[in-house]
Amino acid sequence: YKSAREFLNMLHKSFGIDTLVLGFNNRFGHDRPKTLEEYRAIGKEVGVEVIPAPEYRGAAAPVSSSVIRHHLLTGNPEKAAEALGYPYGLRGIVTSGQKLGRTIGFPTANLNVGDKSILIPKPGVYAAYVITPDGKRRQAMVNIGFRPTVSETEGQGEISIEAHIFDYTGYLYDEEVTVELISFLRPEKRFSSTEKLREQLERDTQSAKKALS
C-alpha cells in the first residue's frame, strides 16, 4: 500500500503525470488525506497539479455507479440514461435460441453477452433500440427473463435476452449487436399457452412503438 505522497510521486516519475483531476469525494493512499488542500499541497511537492472535479448537480443528480445500478435493477432505464448521459446498452453475439417467437410471428435475436460481470437489468419487457451490424439503430422490444417463456411452473432457468426488431428480416446469427434499453414496459410473465403469449406480444409491440415514438 502506498501513501498519497508515494502514489502521486509514482504517477509523476513512472508515467509522466503532471496533472491529476480528483473527484469531489475521491480519496486515495493508505493515509487518506481528508481535504483537497492536503492533496494539492502534496502534489505541488512532487510535481503534480491536483485539480478538483466538482460534484454534478444537474437533473440526474446524484450520479454514481451504485445509483445507476439501482435504476437498472428496479426497472428505470430512463433514469439510468439521465445519469449516464446515454441509454444503457448490452452488447453481445446473436446466437440460436429456442425459436419459439418465430413460430408465433415474433422472431427474436437471442443475445449472448458473454461477459458475466455485465449488469443485467431487471427481468421484464423493454422498449429498446438495436444497433445492427450495418450501423443502423432500429426500434425493437426486448425481453429479459428466464427460460422457458411459456411454462406452467414458476421455476427459473437460464437468463435470456431476446430482441424482436420491428420490420427487420436480416440474418443476424453470429453477428455482434448492441441493445439500448429505453423504457420498461412490464414485468416478466409466464403464459399457459403460446396463444396467450402471442396476444401479449401484440400489446407489447404497440406499447414499445408508442414509447419509442
Results as ranks from 00 to 15, higher is better:
Arg40Pro: 13
Arg91Phe: 09
Val94Thr: 13
Asn76Ala: 07
Glu175Tyr: 05
Val46Leu: 00
Asn9Gln: 15
Lys34Gly: 12
Lys44Ala: 11
Lys210Pro: 14
Ile144Met: 07
Arg5Met: 02
Thr169Val: 15
Pro87Leu: 00
Arg27Lys: 12
Thr95Arg: 15
Phe191Gln: 08
Thr95Gln: 13
Val142Tyr: 00
Ser65Cys: 09
Glu38Ile: 14
Ala211Tyr: 06
Thr108Ala: 03
Asn143Ala: 05
Ala208Ile: 04
Thr178Arg: 13
Glu176Gln: 12
Gly47Val: 11
Asp115Met: 12
Glu45Thr: 08
Phe166Asn: 03
Leu197Arg: 09
Thr19Met: 11
Pro54Leu: 00
Arg198Glu: 14
Lys122Cys: 05
Thr74Glu: 05
Ser193Met: 07
Phe166Cys: 12
Gln139Ile: 14
Ala61Leu: 07
Gly29Phe: 03
Gly114Thr: 13
Thr35Val: 05
Lys116His: 14
Gly16Asn: 08
Gly114Pro: 10
Pro62Met: 00
Ala60Gln: 03
Asn76Gly: 06
Asp115Leu: 09
Gly47Arg: 09
Ala83Asn: 08
Gly92Ala: 02
Thr153Asp: 00
Pro121Lys: 08
Ser207Cys: 14
His30Ala: 11
Asp204His: 02
Gln139Gly: 13
Lys136Leu: 05
Ala83Arg: 06
Thr35Lys: 08
Ile120Gly: 06
Ser151Val: 05
Ser192Val: 13
Gly92Val: 04
Val21Pro: 08
Ser64Trp: 02
Tyr39Thr: 03
Phe191Arg: 11
Tyr129Arg: 07
Glu6Ser: 01
Ala4Ser: 09
Pro123Lys: 01
Asp204Asn: 07
Lys189Gln: 13
Val177Ala: 02
Ser183Val: 11
Gly97Leu: 01
Ile131Asp: 03
Ala163Met: 10
Val67Lys: 14
Ile68Asn: 03
Glu6Lys: 05
Leu36Arg: 05
